[in-house]
């Protein structure tokens, strides 16, 4: 089935929103149940796309961006598979084959988002320059540019699929070499270290290095969750602060009572 001009524009707008949300994770336009439904709404194939969205949502329930790790890309998976479903024109009968396409699409989307997140590094360097000039307007502008890059990340593939049809897309996904996908995944696991290295360089003093070591070792106990580690960290900080005060303030506290002996003070007041 072919779409008219207005429908194509609307599909691209939905794709753009889904792409933005794929990084922002706020309004959740990129979640399959929303993204597929919106594509269905603007192309007049609401029910098949709604069902596709529901089915994909079930698959994607646990997909989440944790820390710096990037989840399979729900945005590209939902938008592209919904478009392919609509173009295929099979209605509800096409839902299953669209689902089968969604997972490789999610991996392809992962590559695109990795690329855009790397490009965004250049954007924040421009923002650094704007900060040097004290220019609020420029920072606002480049933040919006970065968000638009994420929108375009989905809008371009969507436009591409609309232009070439679903057949070539399938062939392209099959042709993507696994060594590239896996290798980028491995690289992505390592580049996180750069960010941590920058913060450590800023915070580290001889006084606080031991706490880094303790945190590192305790993290190897996989039963301790991040919340648990947070609690231990707070506990250690409080203990350290209190102990360092006890050492230093032995004279200071004597100004209160004159004796420096809390038990003695209590007895004296009786």
């Amino acid at each position: 089935m072919s779409l008219n001009f207005i429908q194509i524009i609307l599909v691209l707008i939905v794709s753009f929103l889904a792409g933005m949300e794929g990084i922002l994770d706020e309004f959740e336009f990129h979640q399959p149940v929303i993204a597929c439904t919106l594509i269905g709404l603007v192309t007049g194939q609401l029910v098949p796309c709604l069902i596709l969205g529901g089915s994909l949502q079930m698959i994607a329930l646990g997909w989440a961006n944790i820390g710096a790790a990037v989840a399979p890309d729900a945005a590209l998976a939902s938008v592209a598979s919904a478009i392919i479903l609509v173009l295929g024109g099979q209605g509800k009968a096409g839902v299953n084959s669209a689902i089968a396409l969604a997972v490789p699409l999610a991996v392809a989307g992962l590559l695109l988002t990795t690329l855009v997140r790397t490009l965004a590094t250049a954007v924040v360097h421009i923002m650094d320059k704007a900060a040097e000039e004290g220019s609020f307007g420029k920072i606002d502008f480049w933040q919006i540019v970065a968000i638009c890059m994420q929108g375009v990340r989905i809008a371009i593939p969507a436009g591409f699929i609309l232009a070439v049809g679903s057949g070539p897309v399938k062939a392209l996904l099959d042709a993507m070499p696994t060594w590239l996908v896996d290798g980028l995944g491995i690289g992505g696991g390592m580049v996180v270290a750069v960010g941590y290295a920058m913060v450590i360089n800023m915070m580290a003093t001889a006084e606080v290095w031991p706490f880094f070591a303790i945190g590192f070792v305790l993290a190897t106990v996989s039963q301790i969750t991040l919340i648990g580690l947070g609690a231990i960290g707070v506990g250690l900080a409080l203990i350290y602060l209190n102990l360092s005060k006890m050492g230093g303030s032995g004279n200071g506290s004597s100004t209160n009572s004159g004796s420096g002996d809390p038990v003695g003070d209590i007895i004296d007041t009786y």
Binding site: G189, T205, F212, G215, L218, G230, G233, L236
Partner: peptide, 26 residues
């Protein structure tokens, strides 16, 4: 001052654990 020192202690502690948990080299 306590908050500053406490925050950097907590910060370094958490960074230590994040390096272990989130940086993946296999």
């Amino acid at each position: 001052q306590d908050v500053t020192k406490g925050a950097s202690i907590l910060g370094m502690f958490i960074l230590g654990s994040l390096v272990n948990r989130w940086v993946s080299v296999k």
